[in-house]
């Protein structure tokens, strides 16, 4: 039985865009093997926080700790190399390179077992095996999302962060994606997820944080917060 440990600890982090405060003193934790979901409307701060974790946004105050180490001001590529991957909104793939090349680049820091990781990705997304030599830009929206997750898997991450994975996908594909995320958790991954679609997200998540205009207004185990009236607003707003 694996002891659960704290993978990510965010302490009072704020993110400012000029005079606009996108995230206001947010604190949260992610532990091994969990799916933690950040809920809230568009522009409520979820994406900004994910980017701040990776160093794409500057944290105006507070700290981000990953596996006990302070990564608040570490450059993005070093953070990624240490085991956090972000599957960003808008797919985050390189459209002018082939599917295979995208997956290879995902494995940039992978020392061994490239074939094993690749096989895991193909098992989960057989369509990527077929489309190996195609330009990533020519894939459909759903396929691009799969590629994005696949290349995230190739980096053997200790923490996977997904930013609005269901955005722009048809309901059938949305179901598929959430099944994939669940499968990833069963395979041992730890997942931090930002989602507008509260209904689907709460079906698979362990814990959740609700964002409203940059503040965290609700947090806790899913089974505890799911009946909170603020969550019902989130259902109506996002899903």
């Amino acid at each position: 039985m694996e002891k659960t440990e704290n993978i990510l600890k965010i302490n009072n982090v704020s993110v400012d865009y000029g005079f606009l405060r996108a995230v206001n003193n947010a604190s949260l934790d992610v532990n091994t093997g969990e799916i933690v979901v950040l809920l809230g409307a568009n522009g409520s701060g979820k994406s900004s926080l994910l980017k701040a974790i990776l160093g794409l946004n500057k944290a105006s105050n507070g700290s981000v700790q990953f596996l006990g180490k302070d990564i608040t001001h570490v450059p993005t590529d070093k953070i990624v190399a240490s085991g956090i991957c972000l599957i960003p909104e808008g797919r985050g793939i390189l459209p002018l390179m082939t599917v295979m090349e995208n997956l290879e680049l995902g494995a940039y820091y992978l020392k061994n077992d490239f074939k094993k990781y690749l096989e895991d990705v193909y098992q989960l997304f057989p369509i990527l095996r077929e489309r190996g030599k195609q330009m990533a830009g020519s894939l459909s929206g759903g396929e691009q999302q799969m590629l994005s997750i696949g290349r995230g898997m190739m980096s053997a991450p200790k923490l996977m962060m997904l930013d609005e994975p269901s955005l722009g996908l048809s309901p059938v594909l949305v179901n598929d994606i959430f099944q994939v995320i669940n499968h990833l958790r069963e395979a041992g991954h730890t997942i931090l997820l930002a989602e507008q679609n509260a209904r689907k997200a709460l079906q698979i998540a362990d814990r959740g944080y609700l964002f409203e205009k940059g503040d965290i207004v609700l947090s806790g185990l899913v089974k505890e917060i799911i009946d909170d009236p603020k969550i019902k607003d989130a259902y109506l707003g996002g899903g």
Binding site: L54, L56, P75, T76, D77, K78, V80, A81, C85, L86, P88, G92, I93, L94, P95, L96, M97, L105, G106, Y108, Y109, R151, S155
Partner: peptide
């Protein structure tokens, strides 16, 4: 090629700038 196409995406891939 990755950096020249999309610098941010390349950073997300962990490509050392």
């Amino acid at each position: 090629r990755a950096v020249s196409q999309d610098r941010v995406a390349a950073q997300l891939l962990g490509i050392p700038t």
